[in-house]
Design a protein around this nucleic acid. Structure first.
Lengths: 343, 343
DNA sequence: ATGAAAGCGCTAACAT
DNA sequence: ATGTTAGCGCTTTCAT
């Protein structure tokens, strides 16, 4: 001991180095560093000092292999730019922060094959649990999840058969309720604007619920418009312009998310279109980001951070077990009428 | 072989299981699964089949311990709700997607002590590299980074002394250039609106550069307003209202980010304030999200995804080495005048 | 082209 | 309160 106190670039430090530097067995050093078992205050301080001056960072790989305990929770989401997912991740982090567990994030870009890869990659680190967005996965992915022998929580969506635990909202119901609210407010010529949905199952389910509820009232979607990529605000503006030019008799526009809805709102306000008199508007998600628009967009809160928190709680409760208890939590999105839907 | 093909919940499968199922030594199975060394096509297929039907997922923990190679890149950012960081992470993912390396994200909430924890936690998994936001870290964190013996890339900011490699922009310069552009356009009574900055070093540096450049012109910030938390759009609106009520003679408002700038813009437009005639506005970041506002806010592109990509490239180039070659990449933010700054 | 033995850095389990 | 031994599931290295 004494060569150098901060940087040893040649070989990462091991427990043995700390053991030698402190004159205490490796096992006791390990105990001190993990706060396990009885260690006298004296040796405790010696070890801690030695570890600190050496700049020792434990090797969790070795620790995990020896103890077959890994304090990681794999969190797999389709996107980070969606605005929705950062909130979910924040909810997860909040809950895990007070525990031993650590979230590890993976992003799939809405691609099933990428999801499979990311999942495989993450499972190969033997995490304590998995939180994954959606109920739709490739067969291979489902099999991996089933066989993983750890708690699995599928989040965001509850319309389908979960593998294990499940936390989310019913997007079909969200679509239905919005349709009901719109019809009840007296709107009849309703347009839909959204993302191209083949891979966004939740948007698709909302749309299905929406059309289904309209059908019950003897109505159907009068016109629709889809987009892909780009600035959502701008796309909302553009799509709104083209749908209204094409179908000037529309009296309501339902957007599959708040950002394009906000674009539509700005378009209408900028072009002297009376909202919600001539045209009513509604989005989806309840993104706080948009508080501060000239009018508050009608929307439905997707319970994003609550979903994250509840999912994390399930993992925490079942950590160490081989499943998540098949718990199902269906949250209820709150309809926020805002200023763009007649009352 | 035959018990069950998909789910074995009792014990995770090991190489040995695949070895037995295929009648091939563990070593050869390992070779097949990693595509290393010569293996006959016959055994290759047998092994692959066995692995697939069993649903084997390799244990990277054991693999990493044995090979002392870990394909993880630790990425540490202060926040996900900031809008800036998802773009950076996307840039990183793009580059790493084509390599063996896998990003792992950690979030610090702008708290130095949290950064220290997250860093310690991540380093204990012996990643192949670290990408971390900012140049300001606690002594302990700096020491850990220095001693880690892996490539370190500090990102976003280039105003300071990096530990190893560094990719970003000069926020001081960004502030100065914006100040110059504003003064050159003829504005003289300039207000500043931003976050409370004690922990956001980059916002602070922009502010410093800004005031410094104003000083050179014999000017100073005429009034200022700070906020914390909440919806940025709404805060921008509120702050703009109060600063303009308090100092009605201001002819320019410089916002520390685009979201509050957008809030200010909406406030001005909604209250019949001539922009950029009576009051000019500018933000910072160049968030694409805001394309689609009634006017395009003057701003400065922070090169977010490029920063992510360049940082990831450095890690890729230096993976396996004990440092990142102390490479420094200073990107140049582009001033976008938009419609809110006179020309 | 395939196999056998040793060991990565830690922790569980059992001494003392 | 502290130490000793064995081994976690792989890969490295050295045979064959």
């Amino acid at each position: 001991m004494s060569k150098n106190a901060t940087a040893n670039v040649n070989r990462p430090l091991t427990l043995r180095d700390v053991s030698e530097a402190s004159g205490v067995s490796e096992m006791t050093v390990s105990r001190v560093l993990r706060n396990r078992g009885d260690v006298s205050e004296a040796t405790r301080t010696r070890v801690l000092n030695a570890a600190k001056t050496l700049g020792y960072v434990p090797n969790k790989i070795a620790g995990a292999l020896a103890s077959s305990r890994v304090n990681l929770v794999a969190v797999i989401v389709p996107s980070l730019s969606n605005l929705v997912f950062p909130d979910v991740l924040t909810g997860i982090s909040e809950v895990l922060e007070d525990t031993e567990l650590q979230p590890v994030f993976g992003v799939t870009n809405y691609k099933p094959e990428r999801e499979e890869q990311v999942l495989y990659e993450m499972l190969s680190w033997r995490p304590s649990g998995v939180i994954i967005a959606g109920l739709e996965h490739s067969d291979a992915a489902r099999n991996m999840l089933k066989a993983a022998g750890i708690p699995i929580v599928e989040i965001m969506d509850t319309d389908g058969e979960p593998i294990d635990a499940n936390v989310g909202i019913s997007h079909r119901r969200a679509g239905r309720e919005m349709a009901k609210a719109i019809v009840q407010a007296g709107y009849r010529k309703i347009g839909f604007l959204g993302t191209k949905m083949p891979l966004d199952h939740r948007a698709r389910k909302r749309f299905e619920g929406f059309t289904e509820a309209l059908a019950k009232e003897g109505l159907e979607v009068a016109d629709q418009e889809f987009y892909e990529g780009g600035s959502a605000l701008l796309k909302g503006r553009e799509m709104t312009e083209s749908i209204l030019k094409r179908s000037p008799d529309l009296d309501f526009l339902y957007y599959s998310n708040d950002m394009i809805g906000a674009g539509g709102l700005l378009y209408c306000l900028g072009n002297g279109i009376d909202v919600p008199g001539k045209v009513g508007l509604a989005g989806f998600n309840g993104v706080e980001l948009l508080d501060g628009l000239p009018r508050q967009l009608a929307t439905m809160d997707a319970c994003r951070s609550e979903i994250g928190r509840e999912a994390a709680k399930i993992i925490v409760e079942h950590a160490g077990s081989d499943n998540g208890g098949a718990k199902k939590i269906v949250l209820t999105p709150k309809l926020q009428l805002g200023d763009t839907l007649k009352r």
